[in-house]
Design a protein around this nucleic acid. Sequence first.
DNA 1: ATAATTTGTTTCGTTTTTGTAACAAAGCGC
DNA 2: GCGCTTTGTTACAAAAACGAAACAAATTAT
Lengths: 241, 241
Amino acid sequence: MTVDDDADLQVVMRHYLEAEGYQILSAHSGAELLSKLESTAPDIILLDLILPDNDGLSLLGQIRSKCSAAVIVVSGKDETADRIVGLEMGADDYLTKPFEMRELSARIKAVLRRTGGGDAPANDKAAAGNLAKAPRLLFGGWVLDRRQYQLFDSEGKPADLTSGEFRLLEALVSAPHRVLSREQLFELTRGGSDFDSYDRAIDIQIARIRKKLQDDPKNPELIKTVRGVGYMFTHDAKASE
Amino acid sequence: MTVDDDADLQVVMRHYLEAEGYQILSAHSGAELLSKLESTAPDIILLDLILPDNDGLSLLGQIRSKCSAAVIVVSGKDETADRIVGLEMGADDYLTKPFEMRELSARIKAVLRRTGGGDAPANDKAAAGNLAKAPRLLFGGWVLDRRQYQLFDSEGKPADLTSGEFRLLEALVSAPHRVLSREQLFELTRGGSDFDSYDRAIDIQIARIRKKLQDDPKNPELIKTVRGVGYMFTHDAKASE
DNA sequence: ATAATTTGTTTCGTTTTTGTAACAAAGCGC
DNA sequence: GCGCTTTGTTACAAAAACGAAACAAATTAT
């Protein structure tokens, strides 16, 4: 996917890369790019940092939260500082205009070689990214609302979670189908490193959450105990506004 | 590993990168580099194309045949043609002297990010590296899911492995076609060093896993006993998301 | 300062996992 | 084929882990 407001360059790049066998999608603005990322998962993105509607670097961050495509920044600015910041922000390579098509091609190949391009990332990863940030998470008839720091049932009635309980449930729901150890849960919800492996505090909080959600530990619909390891949220969760 | 005949640059790079936490090996010629690759497996090689005894580009080919370390070419020549050829010959990135250490650092990080740097030495180990980290391992109709800490059959039904059984099977599947002694398996799954060579615990766990997977020790499809040594996972395994 | 709420600790019971011991079966060497 | 060693199986015991409840301590609200 090429993202550049210079239409001539886009045409040239498209022709050259298509002749090499690549399948090209184009976008002319950051908004168009982000919109296309909702429905497609490119292996690699060629990104111009100077776009009409977006600061390219913050766009880089947004791309990163939506997909794990490799990113080659294509820029008219040849300052070392820009190159460094771009790479530090997550770009996989940096190419300065004007450049030869053959160099672009070689860099694309080098990057894809290393990412095993074609492993279009993951709905999984993208989904996880969304879950980590969305204002609301929906699951099994419940709405976990980060803004209100509370969980609501299907009729909007609050489950009356304490802040500690909310944080613990949030951590689990944000990583559905993934076992989290008690230590991980401790650090996710409280930070610091005072976890003692004989500590039962997480277990107690889990029990309290289960009681409020009417989830039976023996036939769990939401929170499953993985004996000797920790707990896992078993239900699918959806991000929502 | 840094490969450069410029001793001053090597010292500067070493200090800078060591301060960032990297472990550095140095070589001052192609021959020295190739010799060191016989006994060590770096994650990344910083290679000057102008060496006293070797045409850097053909050296690149030799490196490629010996290990799968990422390679950043560091060169005093700033001609596009050289950059292109270097990348086409297999380099992962190309940096022109003089450069800022911060840019070098950013590029190293970008390359390692892509390669998952850390244990990518020999071809064999590269494959093992993938198996060691992938969220899912596929074999013989089974899916071993590290996130869920469980094994599932082709219909998605869990094999109900205990966490101990899961860890033991994970250790075996991560190193297919390799015999692991009981002591190795003990250490891989439990850590510590309380292994007693008369201990039968691993044998019992293997038996329990076999039973759940319906693998007959006399005609094993998955786990083979190597008498007097240990056990080996006999089936190919594939990494998956 | 007092009351209410939240969180942690402790104890006990239950369940699950793992280990032990004994015997059987398989493999290997002579 | 025999004897010895190693591994597999099974039943039971021991250990570990987790859920529930009660009480205590800490924190927050009035």
